[in-house]
């Protein structure tokens, strides 16, 4: 399912740093609106470039992008060294 929250943390040792719980669902809503608005243009571009090849890929772009966003949930990236501590977590 789509992730609803993005947890972001950037800090340095001994400091509180930057922490954010962001409702990424807002981004998905904006992105969905943008993709719907661009769909006619995408379809036109796909038809124009169909013979050369990229058209077929353009048609697949929407479902592939949806698949990536849909499966982002559970992605966890945490890296820490002496100077920085970074966390990106989709939940």
């Amino acid at each position: 399912m789509f992730p609803f929250w993005l947890r972001l943390k950037v800090s340095k040792p001994g400091q509180r740093g930057f922490r954010l719980w962001f409702p990424v669902i807002l981004i998905w809503i904006i992105l969905a609106a943008l993709l719907i608005a661009l769909f006619p243009l995408m379809l036109l571009a796909a038809l124009v470039t169909w013979r050369r090849g990229p058209g077929k890929l353009l048609i697949l772009l929407y479902p592939m992008l949806t698949a990536v966003l849909w499966n982002l949930s559970g992605l966890h990236i945490e890296a820490k060294d002496d100077e920085n501590d970074v966390l990106i977590d989709f939940a």
């Binding site: 890929l57 697949l60 990536v68 849909w70 559970g74 966890h76 990236i77 945490e78 890296a79 060294d81």
Partner: peptide, 26 residues
């Protein structure tokens, strides 16, 4: 000598979906 730590968890479904984007490389 360093204290570098990395902890990454990638959903398999995301890997599957992401690999399909390789087709978009011209």
């Amino acid at each position: 000598e360093n204290n570098d730590k990395v902890n990454v968890r990638i959903p398999f479904k995301l890997i599957r979906a992401g690999l399909k984007f390789a087709a978009f490389i011209p």
